[in-house]
Amino acid sequence: MPRLTIHEDRCKACGLCVEFCPKDCLALSDKFNPQGYHPVELVNPDECTGCAICAKMCPDVVFKVEK
């Protein structure tokens, strides 16, 4: 199973990762990060294939993907 590491503090909640995830694994959380944004979180870990599209679309280098 792939491993997705999210550097929440860096997230600015632009939502591009959520938009482009082919498996709808991601969503913006209800909590706030230190920058005052609702950071992205992995809501559907079982569906994640480790394709890294989220990481590539993210302007803030929030993700690390291993598989």
């Binding site: 600015k12 920058q35 944004y37 993210c58 302007p59 803030d60």
Partner: peptide
């Protein structure tokens, strides 16, 4: 480090 760019700005990319 964090970029100073606005949310969704492609400079970071």
């Amino acid at each position: 480090t964090s970029f100073h760019f606005c949310p969704g700005c492609h400079h970071g990319t």
